[in-house]
Amino acid sequence: MNKNPILNALGETLKKVGIDKKKVCITSDIFYKPEDIKPLGVDFYHIHRGRSIAFATGLKLGNPALKVIAFIGDLSTLGGNHFVHAGRRNMNLVTICINNYIYPFKATKKPVKTSFSTYSNFERPFNMPHLAKSCGAVFVARWTSLHTKELSSSITKALHKSGFSAIEVISPGGHYFAGIPDLKEEPDLIKFYYKNSEIKNGEETMNLEIEFGKKIIVGEFIDRERPTFIDLYNKRLSKVLGDKFEPYGGNRD
């Protein structure tokens, strides 16, 4: 049992998913400790901030036989562009966006403070599922980190899909916080989000904005088919070059 609920869900998934664990690689711009990662039995790459998806793109193109899961924690700052373009290309990756953005909720009574925004946060967060859908993701879901079973099931689906999948996980990291009167402990906060969520599978992504005082809508929203980058590459090049072209498969040895 992993202490981190998301890694825990991922561990459960990998046990049952029916994919060779050897071929699974995790890239992440969030730091996870070796002892948390080792039990998963997969390759793990801790990438500098914001470049997890770009790195994962290289890993996947370097060896298309790999199943690459890209954790991103910093979509809200550095890596947004790679997300948008990997979605457009339909790069065959599973991205798990850890949303630790800090929202003001009614229950907290006072606005939330972070070290950067001393006057509390007035910026609006992304509607990540909507952005993911707009840029072309084939599978889009959102859960809080306490929706272990649902999250695990979504990751399973994503791993079996071919194309760009985006799963948003609402999981505020406690140590980023300062000055929330009612919610001092991290688990409390996660529970708070869990309680304030509502499952609406298939909801229009446009309506998934996380707003002050409203429930967070979670669920699976998009599940569609689009040819992946490598599919399109092979199709186009075979068409133009004919027999001269050997479909790209990387080193499958």
């Binding site: 948008v84 373009h85 457009r88 290309r89 339909n90 992304f126 509607n127 909507h130 952005l131 859908k133 707009s134 840029c135 072309g136 689009r226 980058f229 399109l232 590459y233 199709k235 186009r236 090049l237 133009v240 070059l241």
Partner: peptide, 26 residues
């Protein structure tokens, strides 16, 4: 796709960005 450019000499195979959609969704 499949327009030709110097870095897509065999025709572009990548799906293209839809600028209004990105703007709207962001």
């Amino acid at each position: 796709s499949p327009a030709y450019t110097t870095t897509s000499p065999y025709g572009n195979f990548e799906p293209s960005s839809n600028v209004p959609q990105i703007a709207e969704s962001a």
